[in-house]
């Protein structure tokens, strides 16, 4: 198959970017989207041009590194996949494909399609943990946890921190990401101890870093490669409200 690619090129955060058009040909349906970009880059290097910079690592849909905005959707046209698990059989021969970085103020472009998502790390550092220092733990089976809660906590914990939710949101809100972590811990007895402080600190950090507000369009859930549910946002709002009520007394 042959494709026309319109790709965002930007030398660094300090300079303006623009779209460039490229062609790739002879791509098989079993080639992944990122492998298709590998083919393009090999051709660019051979021609003496600069290859397109893009983030990627595990290429099996779990590390959350890849971050492309393809034809107007984070991670492209398939539901519930990362860019690295998108295959070219999903496109038609001759298609034009538009490839951009994730766009959000708290995710500045570093080069071409690579953005800086360290703001997510900062939110976790603000409180996205249980303070269980090494050596403190009681026996793992000391506290039975209802399977239902454990499963729900897992569903929330499955977030890979890719940032698609932010890129999908018109307000660049990080509510799905933050609420997934808040829910993961709020659903477990181990997480209850610090629950009030956690939700307040994480939300404050999220606001401070310039993420927008949630206006309940659910674009985040629709684009999340791991299917993280907006139910978590509702749970976080509850946690936040009750934390405020209790602490303000």
């Amino acid at each position: 198959m042959d494709f026309k690619l319109k790709i965002w090129r930007q030398k660094s955060a300090a300079v303006k970017g623009r779209f460039e058009t490229y062609k790739v040909s002879g791509i098989t349906g079993g080639t992944s989207f990122l492998e298709m970009l590998d083919v393009l880059n090999e051709e660019l290097i051979a021609k003496g041009e600069e290859p397109v910079a893009f983030d990627h690592d595990c290429r099996e849909g779990i590390c959350g590194t890849c971050s492309l905005y393809i034809n107007g959707r984070p991670h492209g046209p398939d539901d519930r996949v990362c860019t690295c698990q998108l295959f070219m059989r999903r496109f038609k021969d001759g298609d034009t494909i538009i490839i951009e970085p994730f766009r959000a103020r708290p995710f500045p472009v570093l080069r071409d399609l690579v953005v800086d998502r360290s703001s997510f790390d900062k939110i976790i550092q603000a409180g996205g943990f249980i303070s269980a220092s090494t050596g403190n733990a009681p026996d793992a089976n000391a506290i039975p946890i209802p399977k239902r809660n454990a499963d729900k906590a897992f569903d929330a914990a499955a977030c890979i921190g890719c940032g698609a939710c932010v890129a999908a949101c018109k307000n660049a809100s990080a509510m799905l990401f933050v609420s997934a972590k808040v829910s993961h811990f709020a659903l477990l007895p181990q997480g209850k101890v610090e629950a009030r402080e956690r939700v307040q600190k994480m939300v404050a950090k999220m606001d401070e870093l310039g993420f927008g507000n949630c206006t309940n369009t659910y674009a985040c859930e629709a684009e999340c490669p791991k299917g993280i549910s907006v139910e978590n946002i509702a749970r976080m709002n509850r946690e936040f409200l009750s934390a405020k009520l209790v602490t303000d007394k």
């Binding site: 943990f129 249980i130 269980a132 090494t134 050596g135 403190n136 733990a137 009681p138 026996d139 793992a140 089976n141 506290i143 039975p144 946890i145 209802p146 399977k147 454990a150 499963d151 906590a153 897992f154 914990a157 993961h184 811990f185 477990l188 181990q190 997480g191």
Partner: peptide, 17 residues
Amino acid sequence: DQCVAQGVPFAREYGGY
């Protein structure tokens, strides 16, 4: 033990263990 204390959501049986 350490991982459970940190909130790692390991698979559980219906009894919660």
